[in-house]
Amino acid sequence: MRKAIPAALTLAILLAGCGSGSPPPAEAPSEAAKGAAHEEEEGQVELTVEQIRKAGVEVARAIRSGGGALTLPATIEGDPQGTQVVSAAIGGRVVSLTRNLGQAVGRGQTLAVIESREAASLNAEIEAARARLTLAQSNLTREQRLFDQKVSPEQDLIAARTAASEARIALRLAQQQVSAAGAGGGALNRIAIVAPLSGQVVTRNVTLGQTVAADAELFRVANLSRVSVSLALSPGDAGKVRPGSEIEIVSGDRRSVARVDFVSPILDEATRLATVIAVIDNGSGQWRVGEPVTASIRLSESIGNGGAGGVLVPASAIQTVEGRQTVFVRNQKGFKATPVTVGQPSGDNVVITSGLTGNEQVATTGSFTLKAELGKGEAEHGGH
Rank of each mutant, 00 (worst) to 15 (best):
T320W: 01
R117T: 13
I126W: 07
S245F: 04
S228K: 07
T357N: 04
I76H: 01
Q286K: 08
T207W: 00
R255D: 06
E373Y: 05
R161A: 06
R53H: 15
T341E: 12
L356V: 03
A337G: 01
P23E: 12
V105D: 14
S179W: 02
A213K: 12
L173H: 12
N223L: 04
G236F: 01
G304A: 11
E246I: 01
G185D: 01
G91S: 04
T162A: 15
R242M: 09
V263E: 13
R259C: 09
V85M: 13
E125H: 12
I169F: 13
V279P: 01
R190T: 08
Q144T: 13
S165L: 13
V257N: 12
G377V: 00
G199P: 12
V250Q: 09
V86D: 12
L101Q: 06
R330D: 09
S30M: 01
N139G: 07
S20M: 13
L97N: 10
G186E: 05
I193M: 11
N205E: 09
G382R: 15
S251H: 10
G343P: 05
D348E: 15
V201G: 07
I114E: 08
A183N: 09
G186Y: 02
Q84V: 15
I277A: 10
A32P: 00
Q177T: 06
L171T: 06
T357V: 06
I90R: 08
V49L: 14
P345Q: 06
L224F: 00
E217Q: 14
S296V: 11
Q144Y: 05
R2C: 02
A69G: 12
P339H: 03
N205F: 07
E58F: 06
A216W: 00
R99V: 01
P153I: 03
L72W: 04
T207M: 08
R226T: 15
G78P: 10
L14P: 02
N349L: 15
E125I: 06
Q325I: 00
G285P: 11
L173K: 09
K150F: 03
A213Q: 15
G252N: 07
T341K: 13
G244S: 06
